[in-house]
Amino acid sequence: MTPDINPIVLFFASVFTSNILLANFLGMCSFIAISKDFKSANGLGLAVIIVLLITSVLNWAVYHLILVPLNLEYLRFIVFIIVIAASVQILEMVIDRISPALYMTLGIFLPLITVNCAILGVVLLLQIRNYSFVQSAVFGLGSGIGWWIAIISLAAIRKKLEKAPIPAGLKGPGITFITIGLMAMAFMGFSGILSVQ
């Protein structure tokens, strides 16, 4: 049964109240590693938006048009991962062509989107929650935008933190984790507004 949620509500829910990063804690490693620099954070965020949108739509199609009719739901992990890997591969080639500068700054983190748990997480969520095609596309796009907002916010905060008088023992990862915790708490403030399951 497809849940009865207005796609617009679902979009805002996936950006804010159930933000993939700050509410579900998926996709943490590149979130922390790349947020040191605002430009690359922005680039990686945009890449995640595109990959999430593409893979949500593609995986929805593959799951509902191929796996379900053939009773092969149990192969979903391997198939989802292959589709994600192929999308990232193509995106990598396109970025290399269009913006070599962005390609250089993203470096190893671009191929690492393949195993970014936010991506597989979103794809599995939309399969578990049995979203329709439109809902899947909107959820994928919204989660991507949510991830992007979270990483550029953290990058902006970390830029400020560079000049802040931080106790020596907390410099670097320590203060970053505390910051992320506070951000997550702030995003929890949205949680009463919409509830999406």
Partner: peptide, 22 residues
């Protein structure tokens, strides 16, 4: 077979993109 066909199609897509993009 299904997995192979899906993978094969995606690999074909990548190869075609590679030809165009690179």
């Amino acid at each position: 077979l299904s997995v192979s066909i899906i993978t094969g199609l995606l690999a074909l897509l990548i190869s075609i993109m590679d030809k165009i993009v690179n």
